[in-house]
Design a protein around this nucleic acid. Sequence first.
DNA 1: GCGGCGATTTTCT
DNA 2: GAAAATCGCCGCA
Length: 187
Amino acid sequence: MTQLAGIDFHAPSQEVARQLIGVVLLVDGVGGRIVETEAYDRDDPASHSFSGPSERNLAMFGPPGHAYVYRSYGIHWCLNFVCRDNGHGAGVLIRALEPLAGIGVMRERRALDDVRLLCSGPGKLCQALGVTRAHNALPLDAPPFALSPPGDPVVVVAGPRIGISKAMDVPWRFGLAGSRFVSKPFR
DNA sequence: GCGGCGATTTTCT
DNA sequence: GAAAATCGCCGCA
């Protein structure tokens, strides 16, 4: 698989991260429009793949267009899309989306009413969509995943990544311009 | 509206 | 044994 929702997952992670903004992501019919992503690459000290393959990050070195799910701070799950050529070890972290489908289900899972806060962060997003370790290494072109291209033209903004302690100078965080559903505003 | 801190578990040194 | 691609609660302004 190379093309999905108009995106070439063999491209560098920064490019894929930019292209993913505006794409609609559904997991078992629940999801919405991706409004925030971050790129991680093999030659990137902040990336899980920086030190080579391991038990946790193995999916990052698998085929592009698949999911990489890991446990964050022992509490949350975080969802990545694997990209670049097979074996390169690059991925895109899905950080936030604008809820469109299955909002009632998301509210139940998050025990929260405010639509704006349902998916405004990588951990929140996985809780709302029901993403867990069970989704690790699954292909994105088959159920429970579903991707569809943006309906409208998209304006993308970029900035430094969030929550890391290395390579904080590279602007590899991407967002939908003006979106109120991002985890933190862009400036 | 902001900044500080604890929770919890996997991973790597 | 420390650190981690986070979150939500608390105190204070």
